[in-house]
Design a protein around this nucleic acid. Structure first.
Lengths: 87, 87
DNA sequence: AATATTTGTGTATTATAATAAACAATTTAA
DNA sequence: TTAAATTGTTTATTATAATACACAAATATT
């Protein structure tokens, strides 16, 4: 298999997702920061794939109405019993 | 609609997921902590729905081979253009 | 029942995410 | 092309996640 996904990849992808959604809603980093009661620097770092806290991530996810999706995805994973259903 | 999902709900669900997967693999909190080079206290707090860092979450997700799933889910969300496809 | 293992909880310390402010670099609008 | 807005980066400070103990409570194991 080519291209195993790394933790860094996921952090970069999360950052991209934030940036993309933010731009769809025509918000600046500053706008988003104010809306979520976070500093612009926190948004800035997150969008560039740096580490963050779960609260920060979930605030952002929630702001773009994706919290329910995430919750259901987690429920799904929990009910998917095991290791790589490849059979 | 009844029961809007909150950030706290998602953190609790993440903790549950960790606990469940860990038990499937017959690991103690200590085992998992050692495997991921984290303290048991960090695992302990995470499983009980406390705040954590993204790195901690992704280390855990990765250990249970769910990183790829998560990445694909994020890609999916990124390509799902907009607000509640309810139409 | 007694012992061993695991989990929950407390305190103190360290590492680092988050904040705040300023300024440069870049992008967008006039 | 200039001005305005946005984004990137730095430094210093504060808040808090993570660590490293220890010990009690709860769950298995014998």
């Amino acid at each position: 298999m080519i291209g195993v996904i790394t933790i860094k990849d996921v952090k970069l992808q999360l950052g991209e997702l934030c940036k993309q959604k933010r731009q769809i809603y025509e918000m600046s980093q500053e706008d988003l920061a104010v809306a979520l009661d976070l500093s612009r620097y926190t948004i800035q770092k997150f969008e560039n794939g740096k580490n963050a806290t779960l609260d920060t991530v979930l605030k952002i996810v929630n702001h773009f109405d994706l919290l329910n999706n995430l919750y259901l995805a987690l429920k799904d994973i929990e009910n998917t019993n095991d290791i790589n259903s490849l059979y």
